[in-house]
Design a protein around this nucleic acid. Structure first.
Lengths: 317, 317
DNA sequence: CACCTTATACTCAGATTGAGCAAAAGCCGG
DNA sequence: CCGGCTTTTGCTCAATCTGAGTATAAGGTG
């Protein structure tokens, strides 16, 4: 059971760096090329880096020139068959195993990036167009995804059910966090360029949505899912907003992340109730209508409560 | 930036394997010794294991003789200074870096374990006695933790605040998921045997709660926190319960996990409303009072809804 | 059979949520 | 400078959910 102490095991750090504005949520993509872009990646250097997070911050700054704000570990990928970024590991043996520890990072603005690494901010929905339901479900779901998945499922009840649950078919609700399930379903059902690349299958249908190198689109899916979930019980949005903002702007940023339209008055009411924001007294002009008050995030409120939950009615007395 | 292809980077898999009954939540501890027990651990073998999860299941079964049910990745630990399990890596260089990918595993019952690995089921609260609030806050919080933490904080406002938030002092609510924050605070404030072992400090106070090898108690804290959070939006409890159970039994299992007392009638009502369980018609005797109906988990309900959230009022029309 | 214990049913007020109506307050074109 | 357009903001209403209790049912036991 003991391992041969050779270098067949390589460890890298991947970063899903996100930002968002009133229009779109963005991810930082690098190494743009014919086969798609990749996520920022760097080998983990145990002698230079005391912790993963420090290592990550380090080379993100080195490669892109800006500082990460919020950072959290996402997931560690290590399945056999993952593609080895040869350029980063020139001396690695042929069949080396590459492990990637993926982190989620958030920056408040889409800082300009030195062109050196061919990096660019891209909307999430460039890679996952079926995830944007701000104007209702995209037509491609009913037009392409549903029929193709049903064709793939045949009369396999399990598969049909998975498809229904993932994409909210047949009257089931669309659940915005199920990004991974959806991507994996499309991958399995031979609807993504990655399916062809990795499995050699012919595509069952042409689906919009750009592929990425290696399994980076899967990592991105994990990040979106985490963020869409987290936004509901931790005020991570404020890591992406400017210092002050109107409630409409805030709402639009949240909508762009969740890919869902929100109810304006009730969003406002919720914000007021949980006291996550406070008015500055200043007004924003140029809204095209009545000027809106500018708000800022109230850090103090963080202390108060944890997440709400589904079924844990605690006794008080 | 490229790494020397040597074997200074080692990868292992750690497992936090939990179970629970009406009385306690349990964790599987191995290598019981003078310095405390450890979590089950095994080197990751890239040539033998296609995925981490398969590798984990493999050697858990090999070491303990039973099959894991639910498994999920928890976190990857890789800070400098982590202790190298020498026995597992006899040939590793002196200053090798050890990375551990920790998994959470759940088994429905505390199966008997072959004594070969000196493994035993232990209550969580053996390691974290301050986490059990089923009968109100344990006295040690007011008697030892609070004064010692305040002593440690001095007039550092940040520290005082962290302590208050973590332990629910000065009228702040006790938030059961903050297991990690609490453990780290106690570690930092020199109140755990690990603080002495790792940092060489003298303990500021003797606090109940057994230490573990290396940073295993931190891993355990991560697992508890994850589980206490997850239980509220995913029906993971049913991975630990027997096939059928009374509502009181179910409630007691949840209480043992959360370390909190729940309101009986409302727990029942919540269970009925969200339809997670269904009655079998059979009755359980020997409750000491009126016989209770036996229930079982309704897998179908899983499909319906996702988690509830704090502030995402979606527009329906 | 009274009594103890636990299970189950029901009630009630207050809070929260989903949905929509309406007034307020800038801007713009005539 | 005024009516129309747009967006913000305030408010209402019913339905549902939640926290907390009270009351009844139905076993076992001395």
């Amino acid at each position: 059971m003991n391992l041969p102490d050779d270098a067949s095991l390589l460890v890298g750090l991947s970063a899903v760096i996100v930002a968002a504005d009133v229009e779109q949520p963005y991810v930082l993509a690098t190494r743009q090329g014919d086969a798609g872009a990749g996520l920022p990646f760097g080998p983990f250097d145990p002698s230079g880096h005391r912790t993963f997070e420090l290592g990550l911050r380090d080379w993100v700054t080195a490669q892109t020139g800006f500082e990460l704000g919020y950072v959290e570990q996402l997931y560690t990928f290590g399945d056999r068959g993952r593609e080895l970024p040869r350029a980063d590991y020139p001396n690695a043996p042929e069949n080396a195993r590459i492990i990637s520890i993926a982190y989620l990072g958030i920056t408040p603005e889409r800082t300009e990036i030195g062109g050196a690494f061919n990096a660019a901010w891209r909307s999430w929905y460039y890679y996952f167009p079926w995830e944007d339901h701000r104007n209702g479900p995209p037509a491609m779901i009913a037009d392409i995804i549903e029929p193709t998945l049903m064709d793939w499922a045949g009369d396999d009840f399990e598969r049909r059910d998975r498809a229904r649950l993932a994409f909210g078919l047949d009257g089931r609700p669309w659940i915005e966090e199920r990004v991974i399930e959806r991507y994996e379903l499309l991958y399995e059902a031979s609807m993504t360029p990655e399916s062809r690349r990795d499995l050699g299958v012919t595509l069952r249908a042409e689906l919009p949505g750009e592929p990425m190198l290696s399994d980076h689109r899967r990592m991105l899916a994990v990040a979106l899912s985490r963020l869409r979930g987290k936004i509901k019980y931790r005020p991570v949005v404020f890591e992406m907003t400017p210092e002050t903002f109107t409630l409409s702007e805030l709402q639009q940023v949240v909508e762009s992340l969740l890919g869902l339209p929100l109810h304006k008055q009730n969003f406002r009411r919720a914000m007021e109730k949980n006291k996550l924001v406070e008015g500055t007294g200043e007004l924003s002009s140029g809204t095209g209508g009545r000027p809106a008050e500018l708000f800022r995030f109230r850090r103090e409120t963080l202390r108060k409560k944890a997440a709400l939950g589904i079924a844990a009615p605690v006794t008080r007395t």
